[in-house]
């Protein structure tokens, strides 16, 4: 990074630390914070969408759709997250490669040969010859899918409950105005349910933030991976030898997560206030009366 960092062995104190903290490996560590934030930014809307679909499906009047919605929420909610995180990416990866194998390969060789899962070179996903970033993006995408499916199921349950909580009288009024069931859903039910959904959804958001270290399980090099890697004892085989510093690295991660949840809590608190305005709930009533 800096010119004086060319020979770290000659440095001491603050200068050494500056060079150490700007080494290539640390840059990867800092970038992994971006990976975590990106995961949150992509997963949250997709999971909400899954949840919305799941909630609407489990309220549907079409029986198979309703069964599907119920099955999705109860199955995913009933399986431990970690098992799901281990299962989904592997199953998805091998399933896709198997499909590509059937289409793209002209061999009769079975996919399973003894212990090995073998597909022809053209069916590999991503191709062996693709650059490393393609492999990274692919792994990251599988992680997003796994997170979205799991958190979507929980969101579906929250949204389903919120839809049930909208006072029947409001829907009846809409019907009395001559709105069709579809219009009632779109104009009254969905806008009104958010005030009931936000507490549950904000819980889910907090859990999602705290679940991001599971990325490490999926082989994505996230902040936990780098903290462990950087913190371990480094002998003189490395440019910057140091004793076991894992404590400090994990402390930094701890602060990061506390900050994330603290900021989220404040934003969600504001959102709850805004959505409560004009509602026939305790929160709405308190807002109407103003500060006592």
């Amino acid at each position: 990074m800096f010119a004086q960092c060319a020979d770290p062995a000659s440095l001491e104190g603050l200068a050494w630390l500056m060079c150490y903290l700007t080494s290539g490996k640390h840059m990867l560590f800092y970038a992994s914070f971006g990976t975590v934030l990106l995961l949150l930014a992509i997963t949250a809307p997709i999971a909400l969408l899954f949840g919305f679909g799941g909630a609407l499906a489990s309220r549907s009047r079409i029986a198979p759709l309703r069964w599907f919605g119920k099955l999705y929420t109860s199955m995913v909610r009933g399986v431990p997250d970690i098992i799901f995180f281990l299962f989904v990416p592997i199953a998805l990866d091998q399933g896709l490669e198997w499909l590509r194998h059937q289409v793209l390969c002209d061999t009769d060789a079975p996919v399973r040969q003894g212990n090995d899962f073998v597909v022809c070179a053209a069916a590999k996903l991503p191709l062996s010859s693709s650059p490393p970033w393609v492999h990274d993006v692919y792994g990251f995408t599988l992680a997003v899918v796994a997170f979205s499916v799991v958190f979507g199921a929980f969101a579906a349950n929250v949204l389903h409950g919120a839809m049930q909580a909208v006072p029947r009288a409001q829907l009846e009024t809409a019907e009395a105005f001559g709105m069709s069931p579809r219009q009632v859903s779109r104009r009254v039910l969905i806008p009104q349910m958010w005030t009931y959904a936000v507490p549950g959804l904000s819980n889910l958001w907090m859990i999602l933030i705290k679940a991001t270290p599971l990325l490490f399980l999926l082989g994505v090099e996230d902040i936990v991976y780098w903290a462990r890697e950087l913190g371990g004892t480094k002998t003189s085989a490395f440019t910057y030898p140091h004793p076991d510093w894992r404590l400090y690295y994990f402390l930094a991660i701890l602060v990061f997560y506390l900050l994330m949840t603290w900021v989220s809590e404040r934003i969600l608190g504001r959102l709850t206030r805004r959505l409560s305005a004009g509602q026939a709930t305790m929160g709405g009533e308190a807002l109407r009366k103003g500060p006592a």
């Binding site: 070179a121 010859s129 910057y240």
Partner: peptide, 27 residues
């Protein structure tokens, strides 16, 4: 059609294999 061979390693066992300070596999 030339194939890329992907070499897997752990990157935590110096001097056999480790991740050096620029973040690359070394050793």
């Amino acid at each position: 059609s030339a194939q890329t061979i992907r070499l897997g390693t752990e990157g935590a066992y110096p001097p056999y294999n480790f991740i050096n300070d620029s973040g690359e596999v070394d050793g």
